[in-house]
């Protein structure tokens, strides 16, 4: 059946003969990444988290400055790598919080708010949409983490001098932080694809990645089992790479021939675990996102 024209009062001229070109998936990826990044960088949650991380880092640095160079050098065994390792001990938490804030609702927002009715009707494949958002969430997470690294580096230069900084190890730590961010955002995206409300996605991501994994890790360590399955355990590699006295396994005697064993992930092990998380959770997120329906 063919629709007919005419019979109604003429409106304004609307046809503009607009030239268009077939946008590739890669172009769509950059478009979505830039759009999502533009959004994230103006959210209150970004400023809030950036401010929080900056405040904690600044307070830490200020207290160290107040203690004096000599005291800090002594505390850190005159090693800048030790200082950096200790300063960056909270990086895992910052990654988890950022991943939860920017990935925990990245997909559920399409099915619980009207955002999906704006973006999902565009001629963009859903996996590309997901990839663009994933890249944006990871970049914002790295901006938060980078702030912590910037304060740590500034402190190390102040207390030990630039020539004492193990730049290659610091770069390695930052590289691990990038992989850790990719893994944490993958988990957050997967949770976001499961839940229907953005707030629940954020909360569950924090609980799962931080509280859940940390608790589980402690429980299995009590049973003398290495927590090789835990992402937060893998995240320990960020600081471990800078630790010159690094021990993969530490056995603490508890008396009466009882021992408590603590594992710290090696760099290779940590990277393997993180890569496994990305390999499992990112495709799963894409599958769930592809299947999700706008029923609301």
């Amino acid at each position: 059946m063919r629709a007919s024209a005419g019979g109604s009062p003429a409106g304004p001229e609307t046809r503009s003969g607009v030239p268009r070109h077939r946008t590739s998936d890669l172009e769509h990826f950059w478009i979505i990444t830039a759009h999502q990044l533009g959004h994230y960088l103006r959210t209150n949650r970004f400023y809030g988290l950036l401010g929080f991380v900056s405040l904690i880092s600044a307070l830490t640095l200020a207290s160290q400055v107040d203690a004096g160079v000599a005291t800090i050098q002594l505390q850190q065994l005159y090693r800048s790598s030790e200082y950096l390792s200790n300063f960056l001990v909270y990086t895992g938490l910052w990654v988890v919080l950022a991943a939860a804030f920017f990935g925990g609702d990245a997909l559920s927002v399409d099915f619980s708010t009207g955002a999906g009715y704006y973006m999902l009707v565009l001629p963009v494949r859903r996996p590309v949409l997901l990839a663009g958002r994933y890249a944006a969430a990871t970049l914002v997470t790295l901006a938060i983490v980078g702030t912590s690294y910037a304060f740590a580096t500034a402190g190390a230069i102040y207390f030990f001098g630039a020539e004492q900084i193990p730049w290659s190890l610091l770069g390695g730590s930052l590289g691990i932080a990038i992989v850790y961010s990719l893994a944490a955002v993958s988990v957050a995206f997967c949770i976001s694809a499961f839940v229907r409300t953005p707030a629940a996605g954020v909360l569950i991501t924090v609980l799962a990645l931080y509280v859940g994994f940390t608790t589980l890790q402690s429980v299995v360590e009590l049973a003398n089992i290495e927590p090789w399955f835990s992402l937060s355990y893998a995240g320990g590699a960020m600081a471990a790479i800078l630790d010159t006295d690094f021990l993969h396994i530490q056995t603490i005697p508890l008396g009466q021939q009882q021992y408590y064993t603590i594992w710290v992930a090696t760099v290779a092990e940590g990277l393997e675990i993180m890569a496994a998380y990305v390999a499992v959770f990112l495709p799963l997120s894409a599958y769930l996102y592809q299947r999700a329906e706008s029923t609301g």
Partner: peptide, 21 residues
């Protein structure tokens, strides 16, 4: 999806562009 929606404009339910933009 890409080819089906290439020449289509759709306004469904109440779309919400990002409020920050």
């Amino acid at each position: 999806r890409k080819n089906a929606l290439w020449d289509v404009g759709a306004l469904i339910e109440t779309p919400e562009p990002y409020p920050t933009l």
